[in-house]
Design a protein around this nucleic acid. Sequence first.
DNA 1: CCATAATTCTTTTTT
DNA 2: AGAATTATGG
Length: 690
Amino acid sequence: MFCAKMISVKEYLKGLNGKQKEAALHTKGPLLIVAGAGAGKTKTITHRILNLIKEGVPPQKILAVTFTNKAAKEMRERIISLLGGENALPFVSTFHSLGVHIIKENARLLGHTKYFTILDEGDAASLIKDVLKELGVDPKQYDPKRIRNIISREKGKFTHPEEYEVSAEGTIGKIVARVWHLYEKKKMKENALDFDDLLLKAVKLLKENTEVRKIYQERWEYIHIDEYQDTNEVQYLMSKLLCGDKHNICAVGDADQNIYSWRGANLKNILSFEKDYPDAKIIMLEENYRSTQNILEAANEIIKKNKMRPDRNLFTKNKTGEKIGLYGALDEADEAEFVATKILEIMDSAPEYSSRFPRQPGELAQGFTLDISQGSNHAISGSKPATKSSSGLSEIAVLYRANFQSRALEEAMLRYNIPYQVLGVKFFERKEIKDTLAYLRAALNPDSLSDIKRIINFPVRGIGKATLAKIFAGQKDALPAKTLLKVNSFYELLGEISEKVKTSRASEIIKYVIKKSGIENELLLGGEEDIERLENIKELATLALKYDNLGDGAGVEKLLEDASLASDQDGLMINQEAKVKKGASAVKLMTVHASKGLEFRHVFITGLEDGLFPHQRRGERDGASDREEERRLFYVALTRAKEKLFLCNAQFRTIFGSRSINAPSEFIADIPSDLLEREGESSGIKTIYL
DNA sequence: CCATAATTCTTTTTT
DNA sequence: AGAATTATGG
């Protein structure tokens, strides 16, 4: 119905290409946007939302769901900038926080309070461990994490525990069935939900309760689902239930970028979109605006080798660009050294940075301690904080398959005085942060045993295992008088905190907790490490300032929610805001998974060794599809780069403290050699052996 | 109950 | 290699 004339009228869509415009203008009925890497996916979706609003749809009627907080944040910001000063905004959320939202509004229906505790994977695994012990199963023989994974996978498939019990096979299956049952019971008793529950319970509500379903279907008339290829069964059901009969669903995705099948992501969802919504409009975005032709060609060659994929190719009008650099390193230290020196070279080639870095590795800033565990943002003391021109550094990313690889890279960055930031150090998973938050959670949810367990004897109060067991068994009166006194004063403390929560702002409460609990005193007495921990908690208080305007009580509640749902990158993002704001720009180190959705002028892909990338995992799952997933992962890595790409592999790598020899990844050989260019060999390959 | 010593993991990717 | 968990003795 819309003709060229009408399109031309919409000034605000003029930055889009034909296909993108078509997508933005298709507002009624189901729409699938198949968007290749760098094809302007977010731009299209945000403009579509803009168009809806311009056509008169109230912003609150629009929902956009993403996978990560970072993606949600970016989308929100881009919508805000498109809308200008408008005050009402669409509801942009991750799947998990949408789940929390729905559950909180209906907590009673599920037998929970709105202060339910969210268990992270660690909490969940330790709860499973307790369950195993209770059932008389040796947790060493049956790894709690593994059991947790199996349960998680089943929950992601929307399997009922009873259903599973019937179909469970083998010894493990039987054990899982028993554990699962008790695990659910315990969570209920603790008023706690695991990550899967956040989606599952929300879907159950929507599915089984007509009124609830109606409320949300009416609340949101237009829904958008980002990264549709990564949805699992539960998320798929959620999207379906939310869009109801109106079918105003816009899904965006790219089958080639499905890298989460190990988490239950089901390609079927995107591949059978047309079956689910027969009147669906499908739009393919195949022009890449991000990368040079060389980079894109390499990526196309890599992904072509997968069998299970749509037949299509991205193209670009960008220039040919430089060749892809290739470096065969001796070991991980050599590899890291190469990366570091290359980064300096890159910075040197931009004249405005040339004076910033020391030329020799020896010129280190004095008094700088090497502290890998902290990760985060190491703007080097002694080197001037980078100013406006320093954005160059943040245009560089170093990618790797597994988190442990960051270590060697960090050491090199420190030696060469290159400011860097590691995405993957989970601020909210640090012990001191978890401890502090546990006080708040326990105060709000007195049933939360996992939180109480964590803090009842930290700082040391002389309440040990035996005492704990008695309390949990409801036999407080069986305690010796002296112990009872300690226990009571602990619960009084929780009571005081809970009172304080109702009457104070988030940042104040954090300070209150560390004082009253004795955490502060404890850490002040400790060594250097403890002081650093205290600093981290203070950072938490700073971060909490942002929640102060939500009002007394509500601020803490939201802070706790965000803390539970913050992934590593998000967590760090928040963590860093304070530091980065000062203008420090840094090279980014992260896993390939974490890099999805991002782009950088210069990208290093490290650890391209057989067994590491593609990663060799132990059996269990179907090898062929795993291999294809590794390939998709490499494809994602390649397509992050805009201008220059470096590939590195190391002959030797130390894993678990012992050195292993690795052949270069097959991926390197899969790239046409005319796209590659050797960056020189490491010295001494022949001489050093062991 | 707690501090220290000994032992056993860890490393795939994440909401 | 280093962290984390568990065993041991006070």
